[in-house]
Design a protein around this nucleic acid. Structure first.
Length: 675
RNA sequence: GCCGGGAUAGCUCAGCUGGUUAGAGCGUCGGAAUCAUAAUCCGUAGGUCGGGGGUUCAAGUCCCUCUCCCGGUACCA
């Protein structure tokens, strides 16, 4: 019989145009997996939902760039990411996708629900349309001048300079970010969600939450302060969920509105698969069900403001009970390539290390209150000094002792004394405090408390000195080893949320089934004397320096082997001839004030003089360049950099952390043509 | 440059609404032990909490300022 309270746990829907990396795992996936596994051990009624977010402009754009269909894009990332999660032991009850029929249907029903209640506002507007691209341009693919602060490169959805929320039509001098095409205004009709109407209810609701993390609350405060605005929830686009109202051909529901509904549709799908098609309602609608969203900090606004307001408007569903958002996990330490910044992909790291080692390293470093750091050396040290030394060693020393001194049989429990029951009781107390940490989403503290329990098991072994008892008090020795084996079982349960694979291995070593594998049995006696043990094995082999050094150098060496490929953007000779390259002599050179990278150079090119601005100040001193013969693009359209005119561009070679200006081999007159 | 987030022991991080001698793990060093993957257990040392001002009886914790770091973005070779 399950406990009454139900838990509906969701993990952020990964966007299906990228492979997930360990930063994602640390932010939004490992903590819910640990939480859910813990809840299941407590016999709680919990389901764990996630899936790929597969619609939207970015995916459509990616398909255009790669010249394949959006379906091919999302298939690639969906299946790869699904497998990556499995390999890491992230065990969803369902990991589905928003391209499914049931999601389309659910999202449309949700939309219609609001539509029929006249909550949605229909508005005809002039939107920006590119004749050249034959499409309406998505917000983020338009740039222009911010009407609030005058910043010239504001995006269609927000100004990154002043943080204002914008809609593209507000921009001054808009243009396509993709082609630079100047879009024209074209009449189109869209539905708007009146987010502003919910501000009061939302803020009241959020500020009533005393147990939410401060980063979540603070983020919302910022949004409330700025004021919530109505947002269009449809788009002129092919790739997405069709607007279910007649007369809206060529329109889809905007992803930010449609994707979170995926949590609902995926829950439905789960219970259809379980042959209980109505049961999803118990999790979404019953008062005694708790909806918990695990997300990274980049997702806070959608889960704490947008989606809840949608749920309020709809009315049938529960609001989130908590949103324990994490910060970011950075890949640091050794000189990783900053310019690439792809992070460590899950699909790659699982080939290198056992999933539990990866899980442990990430979990001890969860960015719970601020960004944290992941390094290969840390992983090695966590494996060798903690997992192997403390956990692996305790299991191993116990089992090896039983094997060599008691014929691999669980010894007698006849003469347990106070010290034995004490350590078992101590484990019960540990389990209670670990519980309290999990209940409050304090995963690092939970794990550290868990390891303390394992340490105390080692201490018990040391203090009991079974290697001496075996000589002069065999019965006591049996009791001690029996107790240690019980501790092994307790440890298996205790660590299993974080280290599920290791827990299974320990059960095999103990030759024990899962009948007593739950939280209540921690510190209890569940083994039978006289039972044969299974095969012992090393749980955490040492990770050698050489393996770590190899990984460090691989991720550092940006020049490392890259296959020669035909570049995608082949040009004709004619194209190259358009560029006038000339030799120029540097006459003057000075640093541009307040700039980090810019030099202002005066050049002599034959009879003419010209001024250019160049971003090489981090690599040269001004005096180094004066007198040098360099190569410049003579016919480049002039531009202004930090208010200074630049009439050309010098050529330089650049790689990570290095830049060299192109010069000529020997003397030649300035003004000479380069080709 | 702008926006955002940081700066606490060698390393990775805790320190709630300001209140006794600033904490943990790992690493260091010393000791005990030898069943165990040279793994354990006990103990030790290490910080004027980035600098400087201020508010307060009292500040790592609040305010101002400076420096540096990270992320995003812009300076585009």
């Amino acid at each position: 019989m399950k406990n009454n309270t139900k838990y509906l746990v969701t993990a952020a829907l990964p966007y299906a145009n990228n492979y997930i990396h360990i930063g994602h795992v640390a932010g939004a996936y490992l903590s819910p997996d640990i939480y859910v596994r813990y809840r299941k051990l407590k016999n709680d009624d919990v389901i764990f939902i996630s899936g790929s977010d597969e619609h939207g402009t970015a995916i459509e754009m990616a398909s255009i760039i790669e010249k394949i269909t959006p379906q091919e894009i999302i298939d690639r990332y969906h299946f790869s990411n699904k497998k990556a999660f499995e390999d890491l032991g992230i065990q969803f009850d369902i990991f589905s996708r928003t391209s499914s029929d049931i999601h389309h249907k659910t999202a449309q029903e949700f939309f219609l629900n609001l539509y029929n209640k006249n909550i949605l506002v229909k508005r005809s507007d002039k939107q920006l349309y590119s004749e050249k691209e034959k499409r309406f341009l998505a917000d983020r693919f338009i740039t222009g001048t911010c009407p609030v602060c005058g910043y010239e490169e504001a995006r269609g959805d927000e100004c990154e300079n002043c943080g204002s929320n914008l809609s593209p039509s507000e921009l001054i001098n808009p243009r396509s970010k993709i082609t630079g095409d100047i879009p024209v205004e074209k009449e189109t009709t869209h539905y708007y969600f009146p987010l502003g109407n919910y501000q009061e209810k939302l803020s009241e609701w959020i500020f009533s939450k005393t147990d939410w993390k401060s980063n979540v609350i603070n983020y919302c405060k910022g949004w409330f302060k700025a004021g919530l605005r109505d947002r269009a929830i449809t788009r002129d686009l092919d790739w997405g969920v069709k607007v279910p109202v007649e007369g809206n051909d060529g329109k889809v529901i905007y992803v930010w509105f449609e994707a979170p509904i995926g949590y609902i549709s995926m829950t439905k799908e789960l219970f259809i698969k379980r042959n209980e098609p109505d049961k999803w309602k118990e999790y979404w609608c019953n008062k005694d069900s708790r909806l918990i969203h695990f997300i990274g900090k980049d997702n806070i606004v959608f889960h704490s403001i947008v989606f809840p307001s949608m749920l309020m408007a709809h009315g049938d569903f529960n609001l989130p009970h908590n949103i324990p958002a994490n910060e970011f996990l950075n890949i640091g330490g050794e000189k990783f390539s900053k310019s690439r910044g792809n992070g460590i992909l899950v699909k790659d790291i699982v080939k290198e290390f056992e999933p539990d080692v990866i899980r442990y390293t990430i979990a001890t470093n969860f960015p719970e209150s601020k960004d944290s750091e992941f390094t290969w050396k840390d992983l090695q040290s966590k494996n060798n000094n903690e997992l192997a030394a403390i956990l692996g060693n305790f299991i191993n020393r116990t089992v090896v002792f039983a094997k060599s001194k008691f014929c691999n049989i669980i010894p007698g429990d006849k003469s347990l004394d106070n010290s034995d029951t004490e350590i078992l009781n101590q484990f019960k107390e540990s389990a209670a405090s670990v519980s309290a940490f999990y209940d409050n989403f304090r995963f690092r503290d939970a794990l550290s408390e868990t390891m303390n329990a394992v340490r105390s098991a080692n201490k018990y072994f040391n203090d009991s000195e079974p290697w001496k008892l075996i000589r002069d008090n065999k019965e006591r020795c049996e009791a001690v080893i029996y107790t240690c084996l019980e501790l092994c079982h307790s440890i298996a349960v205790l660590i299993s949320p974080v280290l599920p694979f290791t827990a299974d291995k320990i059960l095999k070593i103990l030759n024990k089934d899962k009948s007593d594998f739950n939280w209540e049995k921690i510190g209890e006696r569940v083994l039978k004397s006289g039972t044969e043990l299974g095969e012992s094995l090393i749980l955490f082999p040492q990770i050698e320096d050489s393996q770590i050094e190899k990984l460090i150098s691989e991720s550092t060496d940006s020049t490392a082997v890259k296959k020669t490929e035909m570049p995608e953007n082949v040009i004709e000779l004619e194209d190259f001839k358009k560029v006038n390259l000339k030799i120029a002599k540097v006459i003057e050179c000075e640093k541009v004030a307040k700039s980090k990278k810019l030099f202002k150079l005066k050049l002599k090119i034959g009879d003419t003089e010209k001024q250019i601005v160049s971003g090489i100040a981090e690599f040269y001193n001004p005096e180094d360049l004066i007198g040098k013969l360099i190569v410049v693009v003579d016919n480049l359209k002039p531009s202004k950099l930090m208010g200074i005119d630049s009439h050309g561009m010098l050529l330089a070679a650049k790689t990570d952390g290095q830049l060299k200006v192109i010069t000529v081999d020997g003397e030649i007159n300035d003004g000479a043509v380069v080709n």
